[in-house]
């Protein structure tokens, strides 16, 4: 076992890991932050997406031991960053029914948040590309895309 420290949503966590343990597994099972989901654990569904040093990555494909020293942001941090209020994206997913079971939602929100931070006025095509690696097994895509576009409009109006 290797002792490592992970910085997640600005908090530091000491954990013992094996080198092949994924960041997704450690965050869920050892740190206890279960907002990040695991579906396929091989890079094909997007449910484990989080921000690593500001970039969306699949945490099932990252060794936890290789995330030391990185700034990790999960879905739990999105609300905290927004002063404890729902983020406009979360608000839009609620308003526009951008989810059915909600399993894909954390990954979708993280990917969309990154998109809107870099491109506040995306086209529908750009939204689709940003979630290109994300599966929604309930097939809610149309409403997910609509939620993201509506959140973008709200965020533009608010800034």
């Amino acid at each position: 076992m290797n002792a490592i420290n992970l910085k997640i949503n600005k908090e530091h966590y000491d954990v013992l890991v094996k080198p092949h343990w994924s960041l997704a597994y450690v965050i869920r099972e050892k740190v206890g932050l279960t907002g990040t989901k695991t579906g396929c654990e091989m890079g094909t569904c997007g449910s484990c997406t989080l921000l690593l040093d500001g970039k969306p990555v699949f945490s099932c494909l990252r060794m936890a031991i290789d995330a030391q020293g990185c700034d990790i942001r999960t879905i739990e941090g999105v609300e905290e960053e927004n002063n404890g209020e729902l983020h406009p994206l979360q608000e839009a997913f609620v308003q526009d029914h951008g989810m059915q079971c909600g399993f894909c939602t954390p990954g979708m929100i993280i990917a969309a948040k990154h998109l809107l931070e870099h491109n506040p006025d995306p086209t529908e095509q750009e939204v689709r590309e940003a979630i290109g690696g994300h599966l929604c097994r309930c097939g809610t895509y149309i409403r997910i895309v609509r939620s993201i576009l509506n959140a973008a409009a709200v965020m533009r109006a608010g800034s």
Partner: peptide
């Protein structure tokens, strides 16, 4: 390769 998350890694 239209998976932004894979392209980042």
């Amino acid at each position: 390769l239209n998976i932004n998350e894979v392209r980042n890694m």
